[in-house]
């Protein structure tokens, strides 16, 4: 997928809620034993949802980008506050941006990279000057289910603009791959998603991520050694490490963007937030691979090259590491209250 004009990242912003649920708490209530695969997960407060977190991440991205007008706002999420009423218009109103194409994207955990592809296309065609793509979720896991250990909350936002001396990175290549695969789903009126346990691995996550990355390599003549960093979707701590090794990457390349062990799977925000952690420390000239995965199923893969503007732009960044370290631990009862599992 090539664009007529080069497209760059003008600004990025991340939001991680303050509260953390240690997975030992989930084990204490349901299954016993020690912690889950990830140590903790980020939990949205009772007054937070995908709209509030999207706005916070978007404000940070806009603060860094310093662009006055947006042409598009896309919010990728599977935890929309309304079944019918867009989250993107809440973001548009909160940013004071009204002459925009605004819509919500839905594709499980890859909804945000879908949004990035679409904004990249609009900017790259010359149709708009700047666009905003957001990935956000207050991921839900059925109480007691394996998913409950890993489902976290968070948001990541990117302002894309036509490449110019102020863009901090160039999105130099991108591919998308999809098949009809029923590894994970939620029917219209259901509160929690369902999944096919081990089926979510080989035919779903691994097949789609490996295929999209290999397609990116083949189309653009790239290989694992060309990248200083790689970020893969992180449904749990193991899958991204395993897929990295299969594709020829070393742990050194993925460790910076690997956030699942400390905040859980933030679904649509997962790989975009890993990219933000990389942008917090990458140097000019370095290349980053980003590969998402969304159940249903598909994967978007991008090659992103850091520019000389990164150091100046980063002065405005609220670093992912700072957002992770500033937290308040909660117990299962507080988590149940915050996420509407109990009410009076």
């Amino acid at each position: 997928m090539k664009t007529h004009y080069d497209v760059g990242i003008a600004g990025y912003g991340v939001y991680i809620p303050t509260y953390r649920l240690p997975t030992t708490e989930i084990a204490r209530i349901w299954k016993g034993g020690g912690a889950g695969p990830n140590k903790e997960k980020a939990v949205a407060c009772i007054d937070e949802d995908s709209a509030t977190m999207a706005v916070e991440a978007a404000r940070r991205a806009m603060d860094m980008a310093q662009v006055s007008k947006l042409g598009a706002i896309f919010v990728g999420t599977e935890s929309k506050p309304y079944a019918v009423k867009p989250t993107s218009t809440v973001v548009a109103q909160a940013l004071g941006q009204h002459f925009v194409l605004a819509a919500d994207m839905e594709f499980a955990c890859k909804a945000a990279t879908e949004a990035l592809q679409v904004v990249r296309g609009l900017v790259g065609s010359g149709m708009i000057e700047n666009g905003l793509a957001i990935g956000v979720d207050t991921a839900q896991g059925r109480p007691g289910d394996d998913l409950e250990y890993t489902t976290g909350s968070g948001a990541a936002a990117y302002v894309l603009s036509r490449s110019n001396p102020d863009t901090l990175a160039t999105v130099e290549a991108g591919v998308s791959y999809v098949t009809d695969t029923g590894d994970f789903w939620r029917r219209q009126t259901e509160k929690y998603p369902r999944h096919l346990s081990r089926f979510t691995g080989e035919p779903a996550y691994f097949h789609h991520v490996e295929t999209s990355v290999k397609q990116l390599f083949e189309t653009y003549g790239l290989k694992a050694n060309d990248f200083t960093y790689a970020v893969f979707h992180q449904p749990n701590p193991r899958f991204p490490v395993e897929v990295a090794y299969r594709l020829g990457f070393k742990f050194e390349q993925i460790k910076t963007g690997l956030l699942n062990p400390i905040i859980g799977n933030t679904y649509a925000a997962s790989s975009p937030m890993g990219l933000a952690a990389v942008l917090d420390e990458a140097k000019p000239g370095e290349r980053v691979l980003v590969a998402s995965f969304g159940s249903g199923a598909g994967s978007d893969a991008f090659s992103i090259k850091i520019t000389a503007s990164i150091d100046e732009k980063r002065k405005k960044a609220v670093k992912v590491s700072d957002l992770i370290s500033k937290n308040i631990k909660i117990d299962y009862a507080t988590y149940a209250k915050f996420r509407g599992k109990i009410s009076r």
């Binding site: 303050t18 407060c45 007054d47 937070e48 949802d49 709209a51 509030t52 706005v55 916070e56 404000r59 506050p81 309304y82 809440v90 909160a94």
Partner: peptide, 22 residues
């Protein structure tokens, strides 16, 4: 100032957003 939910009208009504402070 941060952007938060102020109030919501049950599970079928509207959600009202606004500012709070951290």
């Amino acid at each position: 100032a941060v952007f938060r939910k102020i109030q919501e009208h049950g599970s079928s009504g509207q959600i009202f957003y606004g500012y709070k402070f951290v």
